[in-house]
Amino acid sequence: MSIILAIIVGLAFGFVLHRVGAGNPQYIINMLRLQDLHLAKVILFAIGTSSLLLFILLATGLINESHISIKAAYTGVIVGGLIFGIGFAVGGYCPGTCLVGFGGGRKDALYFILGGLIGAGAFTLMYGWLSDVFPSLFEKIAGGKTTLADTGIEKYQGLVGGDGVPAFVIAGIIAIIFMIGAWKLPKKFNV
């Protein structure tokens, strides 16, 4: 069953990523140059709508809590984020969009995938050494698996709220800020 779901969700995700332009590195590079914010608007609106609906589903108990999985925040994520950002700007792809770009017939995406495989392989080989020599890279931030608005799930802690303010109100405010950001951001800057 999980394989069928992987096919359904993957097809939908790949199709939609391509339709919003994320499979085209020019959109990503122009976004990072602040010249064309189309993709930034798409991403902000997607995060806003999905997190708002997710917290409503959590509050009403209509979603299976075991499906929620929070990645741990640790110092190394900041270093990794910087490296990721450089790759994102230079290549114009991220690990998901390069697959979609390649599927959509772009040869440069294949080179990005090969680069990603080499980089991931190098990190896998270096991980043991990195964690021995730089243990501070693996120190958790704010408890690790923590969210801004409390999900209400015991194993994850929330940073804001809890004093009688329902989590979906906090998540809702954040989501609305994202959605307004998506709406108000200019599509193009004349730089």
Partner: peptide, 12 residues
């Protein structure tokens, strides 16, 4: 999921 994402792009 990864291969299905590729297929999503390929479909287009």
């Amino acid at each position: 999921l990864v291969f299905a994402m590729f297929a999503g792009g390929f479909f287009i």
